[in-house]
């Protein structure tokens, strides 16, 4: 059990992101506080990944402000992100985790080995410690990236499509880890376009369409009584254009 730290709440106010004249995010205002996982849903291209990057602090908004615990420009010391296509360093799985531990510097060196073993076992990769990370499959890499993100002992964990294109067994491992993480009072913010995954994991929902937040609310409310037409179409499984 740990305090959520100074990262929360993450507040976006009137955040717009434009690249090459295209608006990716359009005047988004929202707050991410502590609590159960927040899930961003919406069709491909609705701006979920960009929103995660903004909230992580990887990109700066073209307009508007982002604050973490009330402050602007907080280094991502206690935030971590797992990209949809994680890039592993050219070393073994265990060495990738050791690298993250070294960078975060939150743990005494002599505890690295036990922590690495613990993280590998958490994501079900205990047998993979000596494997060159870049030779691992997409699903294995995603799980290793999850372990690596946790190595830095984050208060907030962003996950971009964590179970996309995983076989059901691998997806289950990932979802179990997410539940474990959330139970440890780490704030999880994840995107998905898999409604099943959203139903299983979400505490609350941010529904996006065309760079805008269309609807937010508790997951149960959203799935049972969506307000917006877009959300209704999306939940029904029809194409939202």
């Amino acid at each position: 059990m740990r305090a959520p730290g100074t990262e929360l709440p993450i507040c976006l106010s009137d955040v717009t992101v434009e690249t090459h004249g295209v608006t990716i995010l359009d005047r988004i205002t929202l707050a991410l506080g502590s609590g159960p996982p927040t899930v961003l849903i919406g069709p491909n291209g609705s701006g979920k990944t960009t929103l995660l990057r903004i909230a992580m602090g990887l990109i700066l908004p073209s307009a508007g402000t982002v604050t973490w615990g009330g402050r602007e420009s907080v280094a991502p010391v206690r935030r971590a992100i797992v990209f949809q296509h994680p890039v592993m360093l050219r070393r073994t799985a265990a060495e990738n985790l050791r690298y993250a531990l070294k960078v975060s510097g939150r743990l005494p060196r002599k505890m690295y080995d036990s922590r690495i073993a613990e993280l590998l076992s958490l994501v079900g990769l205990s047998e993979f410690g000596d494997r060159p990370a870049r030779t691992m499959s997409g699903g294995e890499k995603r799980r290793l990236a999850l372990a690596r993100a946790l190595a830095g002992d984050p208060a907030v964990l962003f996950l971009d499509e964590p179970s996309a294109s995983l076989d059901p067994a691998a997806a289950k491992v990932v979802e179990d880890v997410i539940r474990t993480v959330a139970a440890r009072n780490i704030k999880v913010v994840m995107s998905t376009h898999d409604l099943g995954s959203a139903r299983r994991l979400a505490g609350d929902i941010i529904f996006m369409h065309r760079g805008r937040v269309v609807e937010t609310g508790a997951a149960s409310t959203f799935f049972n009584e969506p307000h917006s037409d877009e959300a209704k179409i999306f939940i029904r499984g029809d194409l939202l254009v």
């Binding site: 990887l58 991502p76 010391v77 935030r79 971590a80 992100i81 990209f83 890039v87 993250a100 830095g152």
Partner: peptide
Amino acid sequence: EYCDELTAMNVGMVR
């Protein structure tokens, strides 16, 4: 290739 990951891990310039 590494830019996103290293930035996200808050890796300093020297490292």
